[in-house]
């Protein structure tokens, strides 16, 4: 019996040691697909000795679903968009940190410091920000593209050649802007109008796909693609003859943020990683790769010059500003879910 107890003790001690060793040397990231260059992760491992594993998702909603399905506690950080940060705080899925824990906290640009979705930045730091609109193939269509009609009531040559993002938030907000409806309105007429318009528009669409949004434009499978601005820039760089639209009705604005997840198995590594991403040179590396805009001061000298004149980052004069997604109450959101379910079924 004594031997048994000793053995148990030794095993427990071993397990504990293994546990702490893991806590010091590992980081588990849940990230958007194609959103961070591998070299930057390698550099992080080189500087800190922390080994990184990463899984990816393709919409804010599917990330939330996966974390709620029991993945919380297996990841340290995730990168939700602005409204999703607010939802996750509300769901109690995020851990807090003190700004003093991050040496580079002061690098955050003033405009992104006290944001409505995370007042005082106690759960999140800025990652990148940008817009969601759509890109149109100039081989196929030469007319005016700065209207949301291109997506929802397209001219004949574009009908049947449209790829939409497979993301509820971005499709519905774009549809609301098209109809001039307010966000988070539970009014029956508004919901009905939204539903009817989308059901009709679906007839013009070829496919739903987020992780394929760039490829379908490069390959020519789609002539119009709802897409994030940086992803559109990358499609253009890869050879697609496309133009990114700034519709007069409006378009979606967003900011992605690195959040500290609740029950993070490696909290210290997560903090180190967030600190690492606030270094201007590293934030610039992400921007150079993903073609969005960093929320960190001092990235300028490290950016590729082509970015300064990139049409996806520089709206023309007179273009409206983007609209951020609002977080709706449960009753309204349930109706939006129903609209989305009916659209996808």
């Amino acid at each position: 019996m004594k031997i048994f107890t000793k053995l148990m003790g030794a095993t427990a001690a071993l397990a504990l040691m293994a546990g702490t060793a893991q806590a010091e040397g590992q980081l588990s990231i849940y990230h958007w697909f194609e959103y961070i260059p591998q070299e930057l992760l390698d550099q992080f491992t080189e500087e800190t000795g922390i080994e990184v594993t990463m899984d990816t998702y393709d919409s804010n909603e599917s990330m939330l679903a996966t974390l709620k399905a029991g993945a919380l506690g297996s990841y340290d950080v995730a990168v939700p968009g602005d409204y999703m940060v607010q939802i996750m705080i509300g769901e109690g899925m995020l851990d807090t940190f003190d700004s003093s824990e991050l040496q580079n906290f002061d690098n955050i640009q003033a405009q992104w410091l006290d944001v409505p979705f995370d007042p005082g930045r106690t759960h999140s730091i800025p990652y990148q920000w940008g817009s969601t609109s759509f890109a149109v193939s100039r081989d196929v269509f030469s007319g005016d593209i700065n209207t949301t009609s291109i997506l929802f009531d397209p001219p004949e040559e574009l009908s049947g050649r449209i790829n939409m993002l497979d993301a509820q938030g971005e499709v519905l907000l774009m549809a609301q802007l098209h109809l001039g409806l307010p966000q988070c309105s539970a009014e029956r007429d508004h919901i009905k109008a939204l539903d009817e318009m989308l059901q009709e528009a679906k007839g013009h669409w070829a496919s739903f796909g987020s992780d394929t949004a760039k490829d379908v434009l490069v390959s020519g499978d789609a002539a119009v693609g709802q897409i994030w601005n940086g992803f559109s820039a990358r499609a253009r760089i890869e050879g697609a003859n496309i133009e990114y639209a700034y519709p007069v009705e409006g378009y979606v604005a967003w900011m992605d943020n690195v959040v500290l997840l609740k029950d993070a198995p490696n909290r210290a590594s997560a903090i180190a990683f967030m600190d690492f991403l606030l270094v201007p040179e590293n934030a610039a590396a992400v921007t150079n790769y993903a073609q969005y805009t960093a929320g960190v001061e001092g990235v300028g000298p490290f950016l590729e010059p082509a970015l300064l004149s990139s049409p996806e980052q520089n709206p023309p004069d007179g273009a409206p500003v983007g609209t951020f997604t609002a977080v709706c109450d449960e009753a309204t959101q349930t109706l939006y879910d129903a609209v989305w379910t009916r659209l996808k079924k």
Binding site: S59, E61, S62, L64, A65, T66, K68, A69, N163, D166, A167, Q168, K202, W205, A206, S207, F208, G209, D337, W340, T341, K344, K345
Partner: peptide
């Protein structure tokens, strides 16, 4: 199929991993 015309498998997947969350 472009994730537009559901089959049973994709309908079920959407309920767990997709936006529907039902």
């Amino acid at each position: 199929g472009g994730a537009k015309n559901f089959m049973i498998g994709s309908l079920i997947e959407e309920q767990f991993k997709g936006n529907a969350g039902n």
